[in-house]
Each structure stands twice: as C-alpha cells, then as structure tokens.
Design a protein around this nucleic acid. Structure first.
Length: 224
DNA sequence: GCGACAG
DNA sequence: ATCTTGTCGC
C-alpha cells in the first residue's frame, strides 16, 4: 500500500527566520509565575530510526520535593533537518504532542535548548512559551549566539552571555569540574528568576532535575 | 568572503 | 542529536 505523503517542511529558511522575529516580539521577560509553584516540567527530544522519528519526553515534578509525578513520551515523524537557529521548527511539534499527553498542566517548564539566547531571540524554550502561554526557561549545554567570560569554578558562579551589547543569557557553573550551562529566559520569566529556578533544581548533577529526567527518557535506546 | 553554528 | 567500550580523573 502506498505510504501517505507526510506533510513536510517547505525549505523556506528566510520565511522561518522572519516568523521568529515576529514571535520574538511576543516574548515577555516579566515574571508571571503562579502564586505557589506546584508543578515543574522538563522537556527534551531524541531521535529513533536513524532520525526518521522524533521522540519527545515530558516529565512533571513536584515543585517542592522535585520528585517526578508523571512522565509522557510522544513520537512523530521527523519533518525537517536540523538547521542551526531553526531548531524549534524541527522539535517543537513533538514537544507539544508530549505536553498534550500530560494530566497535570505545569506551572513552569524547563526546555533543553536556549530561551532568548538566540540570534533572533527565539530559541526553542521561548518558542515553546509563546506557543503555549506557559512560563518557560531554556537550559542549554552549548552557546549558540553571544560571547562570555568563563564563570568561576564553584557551583553557582556565573558570567553574563552578551550578544550585540545585550545580556541574553547566563553562563552558570552548575557542578564543579563540569562545563557550565547556558541559562536564559524562555517566556514569562526574568533572567534572575530563570537562574534562581535552575539553581533550586540542582541535585548534584550538571543538569537541573526537570531537564535531567526528561533527557534520560528522550535518549534511551530502549524506550518502548 | 570566512568562520560559527542549540539539538 | 546519533554511532559506541573502555578509560582517565576526581
């Protein structure tokens, strides 16, 4: 039987970039978090079938104990290739599918990737926030845009990430002798709150619990 | 024109 | 991201 043609990406890089500029204007860097934070969530993506399938993982944790309460995995056919700067167009659909499967709606979301620390201010965490209206924070392992001085060696030490004269992120040492993380606001969160929340979620590992747990679910070669 | 470039 | 075992260092 014929395989139904999958809706694919039109390859219009310029149009995608233009859309990012528009969406970036909708990003809010003002704190708009719910009164008592109850549920935190971590999101990450992995691939199967040599990249043909995109697998997104979502984990909801108790905001106070950081204990995982629920987790979901969503799989969808991969639509477009990885293009630096356009990551969200490739991975966001899967992340939204995983979000739909959650029973509890998170109060604050942590996404593996950048928030506003992006050439056009719309990394995947920011795009996720604007698309869902949920407060979000980006936690990346490498710099995409901007420059910075190396942060001190002690956990908690930080250094501003600057791009075109603006501070777009915070290079944070989350664990001794480990490469620092790049933290940036996604949506409805300030730079200060983004860093404070990541610090509050550290439990001895380089990655904060929400992202660490989602990471584990998204890239396990044996998730069935 | 040359290099950089999240996951 | 992904292909992959052992190995160096704290």
């Amino acid at each position: 039987m014929a395989v139904p043609a999958l809706p694919e990406w039109d390859g219009d890089v310029a149009a995608a970039r233009a859309l990012q500029v528009t969406l970036a204007q909708q990003v809010s860097l003002q704190d708009e978090l719910p009164a008592p934070l109850r549920y935190l969530a971590g999101f990450d993506v992995g691939f199967e079938d040599e990249g043909a399938t995109t697998r997104a993982a979502a984990v909801v944790l108790d905001a106070d104990t950081l204990q995982p309460l629920e987790s979901q995995v969503a799989r969808i056919p991969t639509r477009m290739p990885y293009i630096p700067g356009l990551l969200s167009f490739r991975e966001l659909p899967a992340l939204l599918a995983a979000l739909d499967r959650l029973e509890r709606q998170p109060d604050l979301v942590f996404v593996d990737g950048h928030g506003i620390a992006h050439p056009r201010g719309l990394g995947i965490a920011a795009h996720f926030g604007v698309a869902t209206g949920l407060p979000s924070i980006g936690v990346a392992k490498k710099v995409l845009a901007g420059q910075h001085e190396p942060p001190g060696p002690t956990p908690g030490d930080r250094s501003p990430l600057r791009y075109r004269g603006r501070v777009i992120g915070t290079v944070l040492r989350s664990k001794a002798r480990c490469l620092p993380l790049i933290v940036s606001p996604g949506h409805k969160v300030s730079m200060e709150t983004a860093v404070a929340q990541v610090l509050r979620c550290l439990r001895g590992y380089r990655l904060p619990e929400p992202t660490r747990l989602a990471d584990r679910l998204a890239s396990r070669r044996d998730t069935k």
